[in-house]
Amino acid sequence: MSFIEVKQISKTFRLVKKKSGLKEAFKSFFKRDYFYVNAVNDISFSIDKGEIVGYIGPNGAGKSTTIKILSGILVPDSGDCKVDGITPWKQRKEYVKKIGVVFGQRSQLWWDIPAEDTFDLLKDIYDIPEKEYQDTKRELIEKLNLADIINIPVRQLSLGQRMRCEIAASLLHNPEILFLDEPTIGLDAVSKQLVRDFIKRLNKEKHTTIILTSHDMADITSLAKRIILIGKGQVLYDGSLRTLKNQYETNRLIHIKTKDKITIRNKGILNKIKAKDGYDILLNTKELSISEFLNRISRNVIIEDIDIENESIDQIIVKLYEDYQI
């Protein structure tokens, strides 16, 4: 049996129908129309210990609902979920000691005091033994580069500094599972990289299972080998990122800088545009591989510079969303 086992969970919310206008607001004050939303519908998956899983989907697909169920905040209407043999919403106190949660959009640090004070409080909340606490703290300070910022009131920290403190706060009790809900939202490139490197290292050294949601596909590509795509409350794809890429990433745009004329013709060349100092060529890699293409043109063309554009994973995801009509 897997470490995390989610079996056919469903959750429906009842919402009040709201119409615009004051008149309608009055009407709904007295008589409410409800409608039902299947936030998640019959979702199943399983995750092994030590995996990093990217959990992606458009806004409103049911990502947060699943995270909330997995972390024990919400109880599903039906279905079952076992994490290391524990049902999250049934043995709350026991379960939450095993998990750490980072919400990118919400802070758990106290605003007006240094992060270290919050850490001390968390020590008591999780009943962490003194020695273990000091060791973990030292390690986190070193790895996340917190030494200079841990004594400054949180409100004076930059977003990137604060996020590093947030992550440290979620890991003080050495959780086995870490939920990261958009951990890099609003961060600059350097901070993003730092956070990603840290997460990778954490997974490698401590075998922490990591479930990551993000709209920044660079997060997902650099961290997760496996992704679960969810849309309209259902699992649409569950598998490796590479397979997904191979399946969707067939067209590549190649810029070639040259003074010579390119005359090559092949079924695989979908488009050829003469640019200022060379050509932009759109290639279907299933028909004609990149190496074969280069091989052919380098015979009679002197290439000064070449730039092969990666179809960004964002575009792949957009295509994927279109294919599944979500």
């Binding site: 972390s71 998990i99 009943d127």
Partner: peptide, 13 residues
């Protein structure tokens, strides 16, 4: 309202 209650539910106290 600000969702802080979820956070409390995530702690073993």
């Amino acid at each position: 309202i600000d969702g802080g209650f979820d956070r409390l539910l995530l702690r073993p106290k």
